[in-house]
Amino acid sequence: MTTTLPSLFAETRRRYPARTLDLDGTPWTVRDTGGTGVPLLLLPGALGTGDVFYRVLDALGGERRLVSVTFPAIGDARRLARGVTALVDALGCPVVDLLGTSLGGYVAQLVALEAPARLRTLVLANTFYDPGLQQSRWPPAADYARTPPADVLAAARAQLQNGPAPTPEHAELKAVMLELVGTEQDADMVKAMRLAVLTAQPLPAVPLAAEAVALIDDDEDPVIAGPTREQMRQRYAGSRHVRIPGGGHYPANLQPGRYQAAIRELLPR
């Protein structure tokens, strides 16, 4: 199946231009749809940038303020979380809604642990609180740290190139990821995100009320293993939970309508 870059991807990026904020000497890139009210910050996973949320920005950017975030080359999840909190300050927001997917969901939990008063709603999508199973798929962090960034990038792009594309949605996602990984997300950034996963530690439960937390997942997620999904479900059993069949690890892209409906359902207007 031919992988072509969707026109909506470029259109959304033109509509909401990227801007870079300097936070303690580190550049953080965001796309901000503007508007009033409590913004929703969107944190991506380890592979790709905040632009993976282009369909969310396109569909919901006219309804509420959305801010998609691209992580800088910081290979430490706690430092990333502190950066997200500094970003909230830089945006002039006393409180935000926060959605994190995969590594972004782990970082979002750290933000909730360190600055719970800054969050109104926390949405944890296709993510983990115990990184053990994710780490078992990769070399130890010390070994990985010695790998040249160019080799890390080449392996990541080969994985994307060789990934299956059984549906048009999968083919579109592949095209978008190949556009982002190696360009906006350079080799140093790709390596840093992997190191952020490999050096992560199990987290305690976030100090938020159950009704302020929500989960999004899919039983067929090929990245977040079944035991890890079950850990999250048990920990946040009293919170709202949306399963998105067919969403895999990227429901925002593979099942965009259901993902957008989940956001509307889970977040206050």
Rank of each mutant, 00 (worst) to 15 (best):
M1K: 11
T2M: 09
S7L: 12
A10N: 12
Y16S: 02
R19T: 14
R19D: 01
L21D: 14
T36D: 15
L43A: 00
P44N: 13
T49F: 03
G50K: 08
F53S: 01
V56R: 01
L60T: 13
V67I: 14
T70K: 07
D76G: 03
A90W: 10
A90Q: 12
L91S: 06
D97A: 04
D97W: 05
T101E: 13
Y106A: 03
V107W: 06
Q109P: 10
L113H: 10
V123I: 14
N126T: 11
S136R: 13
R137I: 09
P139Y: 11
A142H: 14
A150F: 08
A150N: 07
D151A: 14
V152F: 02
A155M: 07
R157I: 11
Q161K: 08
N162K: 14
P164S: 00
P164L: 00
A165S: 15
T167H: 07
T167V: 13
K174E: 01
L178A: 06
L178V: 06
T183K: 12
Q185F: 01
V190I: 13
A200R: 12
A205H: 11
A214C: 10
D217P: 01
D218Q: 05
D219W: 06
D221T: 11
T228H: 10
R229I: 09
M232W: 09
R233A: 08
Q234G: 12
R240A: 15
P245W: 13
G247P: 13
G248W: 10
Y259G: 00
R264K: 12
